[in-house]
Design a protein around this nucleic acid. Structure first.
Lengths: 243, 243
DNA sequence: CGGAGCTTTGAGGAGCTTCAATACATGTGG
DNA sequence: CCACATGTATTGAAGCTCCTCAAAGCTCCG
């Protein structure tokens, strides 16, 4: 329902073979760079290019829902996506924010284990599930990379689990802001936050009221400064996390 | 430091080739059964047998520490192990309890991302890291299984993260007890708890006082009955988790 | 300018933690 | 076999953090 599959109703750019390669080189550049770091095999690289197609989404659009049959494997090319799960009582847990170069969930799996929605304007790189799996199976190199990807996802999730278990609201928020800046590779002190407060709250397992109050507290401490669509990090690292 | 490597100082049973296979078939039986569910290849099965050796540990012994070079890959044959991480401020987070048939952490990784200690009397199945990785690389079947293993670990960790984020002490404990019973495949209502209260508390991110109180509360509700070295589950499933 | 959605602020309450003391278990030496 | 010592588990009372419910402020867009 509303998933971005080959039969989805929204805008999917299908291109002629002639332009496929170049467009895909742009769209998938960061993904392939990430995925292939080190041991590039030019032949496999090209193969993967030809399997990819491009999908563009407006803010708020659903990409897939938890439990959906995984017809496609997605990699983010541009924008920010929220990956979340619904709990029995209606609460929502954001599992991760996906950025360019990252898979949406675990590839290979038969069905999606979480839902995905575009936060801002998004461009995705799509592979048909079967084709992607066949490609991976034929390439021990790629399989190994997938294992590593899974391991790093596991590491990240464990880090979150520890954060949720033991950290105060202030520690959670500070850690989130620092991690987020690092993932964005932000050069300046300004860190954009394209998502809603509610998204951050649901990621850190806080109520949005508590999140607001904690942001205000950090600003009062001169650790951050709130600006439209983001924050400026001032002295967050040492002082806040230590105390 | 105190790790169970090929050069470790404690009891390692090195066997003659003649008895290797049979002992290992016992020791690794559950592991290989799990790992190979479905698509068994007898040849690879044998290969793996011959790479394995056996390690026995007393309660409380350290198997490896976070950050150690991963000289060995371990699979539990018998007993229960706590996998944990230390936080900056000295607190401890138990990441998982490992049971027979399970890997201790992610195989293939260069170094251990958590520490491991025997809870009770433990028997491990050990592979040298290099040999295990070479075997895995040579077997697409096994690689695929490893990806699936990683994905299921990821799924489990996400489940824990959600539990820690949103559930009350009572919900966490109830979920833990039910999951633990299911993993043990306990036929009777009695569920053994070989670990300390403190271990369970550090797993659920609760203080051990809170854990005790919550156990008492569940007993008062007739949901469980506390007995030495374990609990008897009475009516835990529906009533407690719903309310 | 007005409305809808998002964000911030306020007051009161519930749940977990902290510190402290008591009870229980296990193993050791007399 | 008992007495004691050590580590583990439970119970009690006070405090703090976060949550809940409620209202007001802000921002974006028609």
């Amino acid at each position: 329902m509303g998933s971005v599959g080959p039969t989805a109703q929204h805008r999917t750019i299908e291109r002629s073979p002639a332009v496929t390669r170049r467009e895909c080189e742009n769209a998938c550049a960061s993904f392939l760079t990430d995925f292939w770091r080190g041991s590039a095999d030019p032949v496999e690289f090209r193969q993967l290019y030809h399997l990819a197609s491009e999908v563009e989404l407006a803010p708020g659009q659903t990409i897939f829902s938890e439990g959906d049959y995984a017809a496609s494997v997605f990699v983010v090319s541009k924008g920010c996506i929220r990956l979340y799960k619904h709990l029995a009582d209606g609460r929502r847990q954001i599992v991760a924010f996906a950025l360019p170069g990252e898979f949406l969930g675990m590839p290979i799996a038969e069905s999606h284990n979480c839902s995905a929605e575009a936060i801002d304007q998004v461009v995705l790189c799509r592979f048909r599930h079967g084709e992607f799996v066949r490609f991976v199976q034929s390439s021990p190199n790629t399989m190994r990379r997938l294992i590593d990807f899974a391991a790093s996802q596991l590491e990240m999730t464990m880090r979150v689990a520890m954060l949720l278990g033991y950290a105060s609201a202030e520690e959670r928020l500070a850690t989130f802001l620092i991690d987020w800046r690092n993932r964005l590779g932000a050069s300046s002190q300004f860190v954009p936050l394209p998502m809603l407060r509610r998204d951050i709250a649901d990621f850190l397992s806080l109520k949005q009221e508590t999140l607001s109050r904690t942001l205000a507290k950090l600003e009062a401490k001169n650790a951050i400064r709130l600006v439209p669509k983001g924050v400026v990090l001032l002295g967050l690292d040492a002082p806040v996390c230590a105390g």
